[in-house]
Nucleic acid binder design. Structure first.
Lengths: 169, 169
DNA sequence: CCTAACGTTAAAGATAGCTTCAAGGTCAAG
DNA sequence: CTTGACCTTGAAGCTATCTTTAACGTTAGG
């Protein structure tokens, strides 16, 4: 089949298929005398496999190294290893997302927890200070820096669980 | 303070700070007679805020529209709305990651569930067919999701896996 | 006075994964 | 014979977020 038909069958665009060939993800295919690419039926499955792997989080580079020249002969060990590591990657991402989410929830709570006797500006400062104190390491901000920030306006900075031990630096 | 000191205090590079100014994320700062930028101490907090928001999954564009000219005067309603929507984004992504993970786990199981009387080639075909027959849209991850992933992932990844010779010939 | 470290700018490069464009060649139908 | 749909190529563009480079000015210290 020609590239247009393969595109229709696989749901990809012709340009994408040519792109995959260019980067070595698909092996070069046969050409007709006029230069047109000619694909075997199996190509549809290969493309489906590629998009499925992409959706699972594999990069094209990873897919290229995993894809065997022959769909029936996989490097079993390498494949299982890649799958296992990808699951671990996903779990790491999940952990970070969970943290991000909790961080945002805590931020919302903190903003709404404005004491009655505090005006918005002071509350803004309180929330900001709390938030930036939450991740000192990631921001490369030391405890000295925090104190420096506080010095700007040292009125009140009340929050539960303010600093956690400022690990290392 | 000059840009180098701000960079040290904030953990960002000078080029990144200049970049933020160029795209309008930071307002233009005062200059000394020699042309050097001069920052107020508050700038450290603004940069910390920006990187924190980035880690939470906000794009620089989003941050720019949310950041008030004055750190003490936020658009409370818009901010809360943005935070809430970002949490929803995260949760949607979490759901998709969970599905991706389950998909991979099922794939591993399926590969290992090769009947005794089936050779590897036939098993490969069986697994492939099962996989491609699975809910193809279930794991779809949009470019927006990728961005959110990047926000939590990129700056922490050790090496940005480089591609060899990006498609040219 | 010299040098190293810092500051400035505009422009280009890097990353992933494509799409789009320009400039053609091929082919089937009418 | 013309039209329009298809095919070809290489090169450039797109997105977001920076970094790097080049070429140059400034400043602090010895």
């Amino acid at each position: 089949m020609k590239i247009g038909e393969l595109a229709r069958l696989s749901g990809l665009t012709p340009s994408r298929i040519r792109f995959y060939e260019r980067i070595g993800l698909l092996k070069t295919v046969d050409r007709r005398p006029n230069g047109y690419r000619t694909y075997p039926r199996q190509a549809v499955m290969i493309l489906g496999l590629i998009t499925t792997a992409q959706r699972a989080g594999f990069t094209l580079d990873e897919i290229r190294t995993l894809l065997p020249p022959d769909l029936e002969h996989w490097d079993h060990a390498t494949l299982m290893d890649a799958l296992t590591r990808k699951i671990a990657d996903i779990e790491a991402l999940q952990a970070r997302l969970a943290q991000s989410r909790m961080h945002l929830l805590r931020l919302i709570e903190d903003i709404q927890a404005r004491p009655d006797d505090m005006d918005c500006a002071a509350n803004a400062h309180r929330v900001l200070t709390n938030m930036l104190a939450d991740h000192p390491k990631a921001l490369d901000v030391t405890s000295d820096d925090i104190r420096l920030l506080d010095a700007t306006d040292r009125r009140q900075s009340v929050s539960p669980g303010r600093r956690k031990k400022t690990a290392s630096r």
